[in-house]
């Protein structure tokens, strides 16, 4: 009886943490993107809402989205259209669960034996949502966006998985907590030995996130807004939120796998607070690079992404796996 209460209480707390973290992260990153992109273009960016720096801009935007009418096109496949935005957000929330923030107890919401496997599986969930949105919108541009996303999924998922394999071989575990502990034990992050893997993972993650230079599913100059063309109001906000939170979760996974997660030289690993700070700082560096890319580069063409993935990333990733395996066996 008491065990059940503890279980439910724990679950409630965990759900609460995620429910707070998702909009918070989304807002912070959305704001960071607005501000940084503005500065990269010699603009000021938002400055009006909330007094200084326009820090309330995203809250104002969120409020605006909630007030807007939820328009569903007459020809749309209604249930699919309604549920499509939920999937990317669910996928994102599920990913947050396995990111370790400290070695202490409760340092991770749920440590899974097959943590990274789970992450890779869940991360493709958002593409299903995209495909659903594209299909159900009854809009040719949406359809093309959805199909592009599906084509992209196949191209980048393979290098993403193969890039992770190197780390898994080196750490000897698939648990996220275990991977960080392995890096703590050797006192330097895997990016040193797995730099190729890191680069491939980062490029593939960009493609997964549909960010420039791989934002073909949205490609606003070609497909208007791709799969989100017909969405408005709260459902649009879901896509928007999922995109930004996903940016963080993918960065956090990359940090955990390659950059040592919550570990840093000279910082104790058993403090949840310090762990969160280190993790956030490292993730933000990656997020910054993503923002930096987005506001510097044009986008690829769909066929060029396929070329990049199949002719470059996958062979390189395979090579990386072979080399890592050979070293592991030999040393």
């Amino acid at each position: 009886m008491t065990l059940a209460i503890v279980f439910w209480a724990e679950l409630a707390i965990k759900i609460g943490i995620i429910a707070v973290a998702v909009p918070a992260i989304g807002m912070v990153l959305g704001f960071a993107e607005m501000k940084l992109s503005a500065h990269m273009q010699s603009r000021i960016g938002p400055y009006f809402a909330g007094g200084r720096f326009g820090w309330m801009q995203l809250m104002a935007d969120g409020l605006k989205f909630m007030q807007k009418e939820d328009i569903i096109p007459a020809d749309a496949d209604r249930p699919v259209f309604r549920w499509a935005p939920a999937l990317p957000l669910i996928g994102t929330m599920a990913l947050l669960v396995i990111i370790p923030i400290s070695a202490a107890e409760f340092g991770i919401i749920q440590d899974l034996e097959v943590g990274i496997f789970y992450a890779l599986a869940i991360s493709s969930l958002s593409t299903i949502g995209v495909l659903m949105a594209g299909w159900s919108s009854a809009n040719k541009y949406s359809l093309m966006g959805g199909l592009r996303a599906a084509g992209q999924l196949i191209a980048y998922e393979l290098p993403l998985v193969l890039a992770v394999v190197g780390v898994v071989i080196q750490a000897g575990t698939m648990s996220m907590q275990g991977i960080v502990e392995a890096q703590t034990a050797q006192a330097w992050p895997y990016v040193v030995t797995q730099f190729l893997g890191f680069a491939i993972f980062f490029v593939a993650a960009l493609a997964e996130l549909n960010r420039i230079p791989f934002d073909m599913p949205i490609a606003e100059s070609e497909l208007v807004m791709g799969y989100v063309t017909e969405y408005s109001g709260f459902r649009f906000l879901f896509f928007f939120l999922a995109e930004y939170v996903n940016m963080f979760t993918m960065s956090a996974i990359a940090v955990t796998l390659f950059l040592g997660g919550y570990w840093f030289w000279g910082i104790p690993t058993d403090s949840a607070l310090l762990g969160v700070i280190v993790l956030l700082a490292k993730s933000f560096v990656l997020v910054f690079i993503m923002i930096w890319f987005r506001w510097t580069f044009p986008r690829f063409r769909e066929d060029q992404l396929q070329t990049l993935a199949w002719k470059w990333l996958i062979p390189l990733a395979v090579l990386n796996v072979i080399a890592t395996g050979a070293f592991k066996v030999l040393l």
Binding site: Q41, S42, I212, A219, T296, P298, R299
Partner: peptide, 16 residues
Amino acid sequence: YPLELGAATPLFFALR
């Protein structure tokens, strides 16, 4: 033109 290819930043440099 770069905007149509997805790069937004040259826009602001040129407009400046």
